[in-house]
Design a protein around this nucleic acid. Structure first.
Lengths: 364, 364
DNA sequence: TTTCACAATGTTTGCGTAAACATATCAGGA
DNA sequence: TCCTGATATGTTTACGCAAACATTGTGAAA
């Protein structure tokens, strides 16, 4: 890797009007126009790829741009046009695997479309900094926003979005009046639950996410439905907070119950915690207990044992949310919610249940 | 959580000059000035908190601002002043735990200082999009940049930064001419190695990060030095690629050697992979083999067994890099490299070595 | 040939802000 | 009393760009 400084090429050839003032500002359209012997408006036309510029003129302008190292000034462009070519991403924290992956995809997709991405971190929601977000948004000058967060952080928060500001929410609470892009939570949870059922388990316990999270709710709901469709009465759900630690706590409770042979955790971290609990309790996975997670973290394949889980396609979620948002920015009002399907990754943490030694043991 | 739209308050009271054109643009200083009965320059002074504004006038202006919902236009401000109040973060990918945490801290610190954060994703380095980065930078209009990446992705990439653009690199390759902020890799690796030595291990094996990563190099170097200072000849290092999978592969090799009783992995993922390898080989942790990682991922405490590791303080790294950068932007040229200390988190993956049954077994 | 349509280019203007400069007001010292 | 110098406020201007409008030149239709 090499890092080096670079200055503007060829600017001190005497044609510059200023003495040495142009230390921080780059060449402007006027400079390019002078160099190419045309009007600045023609430079503007070339810069924006408009038609109506003769080939030879265009070339002269492009040469001048290259020579001077011209780059359009976004601030001026934004001021003039009212468009900023910028997308805001509102979030409380980046500190979850999914948010990060999604943000990565958003940044890439936006960049490809010629948009820059501005992070708009919300201050601690407990302080009720509602207007903070709103004001920051009005000031940030973005053409649209993508809202990413853990809904469970938002219970007591109201967010006002400036009117007419295109927005996409990455979450599962449809019906907010905004466009929603999200993983198909229902399908994913069904996949997980059905997988355990198909292996021969007669019951599937669930470690839920926080009750305030829409994703968690949808996963739990779908798990419940899948069981009911199989004629099984769902057991009580205990809700964790997504953390491995909470999964561990709940796992300890679940693991003490010898009837528990199959667990669907609402995310991989909680699944990890549950696995740790089983190890500590001496219940082997998957022989005694099968566990399925949700997310497919980078390292889930290296858990012990490698975790069977539901893979979320965060890349697609991020990409589609930008596509959706750009359509809205372009004035297309018909865009609406998008669901991205998941995929079951079968690894080593699930297996058929151990056949009961005898009916009595099964009963107790 | 509630999401709602909001329009500008009180703008249609007849004093507006335009018919209905102000659909997307907010009120300007001129609007506020008219409302408050002062000149726009006075509004500017109030907005920028300058002195020389009488208290009563100031109040009138502030009231007018509040009434109209005025927010300064960053584009105009940037155009006029040449300052953007914006910091660029250059990265290839967000998809590592450390980068994400660091970015989070950067966003928070920058926001607190009144700066916005713009993501500048670099396109695939293999395509040699060098100039892409450079040009994008000139165009992005940021006051400074923080460069975050996995150095190992950068081997064949040259990055030119515009001259005079303040920059901070979060990496371990000092001497680049730029300010560097980073975890104290040396101290961390020493902590890890010494911990294993202190437990009574006579040798410590190392699973290194990729040879092209400066962090990996520094960790390996420090591990080596610590061993040598203890009078131990360091064994050969095998380099992984940070992934759990690579840690697993190397772990299998290491685990087959019954002499191996202590392993220091250059990150938690590889440590996780190595632990999986030990489990598969039937070597128990920490009785047969002690393992130490580096990073302290969220879930490392829930690995099986809970991983002893070196905690990196990503929050501080992010915060300090912004502090450093802001100083540079303010014209302070004396700022230089910063090292952030790490902390040893002792959990369950390390213990004293199993006492050898007899001398012969120890020898062979 | 004249006229017209249209393509190529130039000129003017204003986006919202803040620096630079200009003016007004007032207190206090001569 | 007048002048001095501060303090408060207003006016002008330019930042870089692109929309709107103006001008020129060209070839084809009338």
């Amino acid at each position: 890797m090499t890092l080096s400084h670079s200055s503007f090429p060829d600017l001190g050839d005497g044609t510059a009007t200023s003495h040495h003032a142009r230390t921080t500002r780059g060449p402007s359209m006027a400079d390019v126009a002078r160099e190419a012997g045309v009007s600045s408006q023609t430079v503007s036309r070339v810069a924006n790829g408009l038609s109506n510029v003769e080939e030879s003129t265009k070339k002269r302008v492009l040469d001048a741009m290259a020579k001077l190292g011209y780059r359009p000034n976004r601030a001026a462009r934004a001021l003039k046009s009212g468009r900023f070519k910028s997308i805001g991403v509102i979030m409380f924290t980046l500190s979850t695997f999914g948010n990060m992956r999604t943000l990565d995809a958003i940044a890439t997709a936006a960049s490809r479309a010629g948009y820059s991405v501005t992070l708009i971190p919300l201050t601690d929601p407990t302080t009720g900094k509602v207007s903070g977000a709103y004001h920051q948004l009005r000031e940030q000058q973005v053409d649209g926003v993508v809202i990413i967060f853990e809904a469970h952080l938002l219970d007591h928060t109201d967010i006002e979005l400036p009117e007419d500001l295109p927005a996409v929410i990455i979450d599962s609470n449809t019906g907010s009046g905004y466009s929603v892009v999200d993983t198909d939570q229902q399908q994913g949870a069904r996949l997980a639950t059905q997988h355990l059922l198909d292996l021969g388990h007669h019951q599937v316990w669930h470690i839920g996410g926080p009750a305030s999270s829409f994703s968690a709710l949808h996963r739990a709901e779908s798990w419940k439905q899948t069981l009911e469709q199989a004629g099984i009465t769902p057991p009580v759900v205990t809700h964790g907070d997504w953390s491995a630690e909470s999964g561990y706590q709940i796992g300890i409770q679940l693991g003490k119950n010898t009837q528990v042979s199959a667990i669907f955790a609402a995310n991989d971290q909680m699944a990890l915690g549950a696995m740790r609990a089983m190890h500590e309790l001496g219940r082997s996975i998957p022989e005694d207990v099968s566990i399925v997670g949700f997310d497919d973290l980078e390292e889930s394949a290296s858990f012990w044992p490698p975790l069977t889980t539901i893979r979320q396609d965060f890349n697609t979620v991020g990409r589609l949310s930008i596509e959706n948002l750009l359509k809205q920015i372009a004035g297309n009002t018909s865009v609406r919610d998008v669901s991205v399907p998941t995929e079951l990754m079968v690894r080593k943490s699930t297996a058929a249940p151990r056949p009961p030694k005898n009916a009595a043991e099964c009963k107790e």
